[in-house]
Computed example of a mutant assay.
Amino acid sequence: MTTAIQPHAPDASTGDLHLLSILESGLPAELGTADEPATYTVPVVFSRQVGRDERARIEDPATARRLAEQIGATGPPLRLAVSDRRLLVENTNLDQLRDGLAAALAAMLRDLGGELRAASDERAVAADARVVEERRRSDATHAAVSTIRFE
């Protein structure tokens, strides 16, 4: 069974990575008992497979530090790890997620999607410029070659 962590899903038309729900079966069995740990790993389901660049940014320790600072987390350092289609939010708890970490994670992924789209757009523009320049160079070479006669 899973529990939603967002009141509504982001616009899936962008293809951006977002979080869908907490995987309840991955939570510690001690939750709600006297033996409940203060922090633990919370598995959260991604909307799709995570790309290489996305994974690198998500798992960068600086990302977890920024999130922890945003929510004022204390205790063991927050850590983010990608495992298949799950985000493992380590050294946290359901209260932290409810009280701001879930929203901070969603915002981080929205920002990440925008940044990666912008970088991709820049690469596409640069590639188009290289194609245009290569075509210009090829046309100029062809024009120069066509003026030469071996008569």
Rank of each mutant, 00 (worst) to 15 (best):
P28H: 08
F46S: 10
V82S: 05
R65F: 07
I148K: 02
D60N: 06
E54K: 02
L101H: 04
Q96A: 10
D11L: 01
L112S: 04
A9T: 01
E90H: 05
D84M: 06
E133V: 13
L112V: 03
R85C: 03
L27H: 13
R79I: 08
D139F: 06
G75L: 00
S21R: 05
L105C: 13
P43R: 10
A103F: 09
D111V: 06
Q96Y: 03
L17N: 06
E122P: 00
S146C: 09
A56G: 04
A140I: 13
R137H: 15
E133S: 14
I148S: 03
L78G: 06
L105W: 03
L87S: 10
A106R: 02
S25L: 03
G100H: 11
V44Q: 01
L23H: 08
L80N: 02
L19Y: 00
H8P: 00
G15T: 12
L19A: 01
R55S: 12
P28N: 02
E54Q: 06
E36L: 04
L19Q: 01
A124V: 09
E133H: 11
Q96E: 12
L116Y: 15
D139M: 15
P61C: 04
P77R: 06
S138R: 11
E59L: 10
E133K: 11
L97P: 03
A38R: 04
T92S: 08
G113M: 07
R149K: 12
D84K: 11
G100Y: 12
S146Y: 05
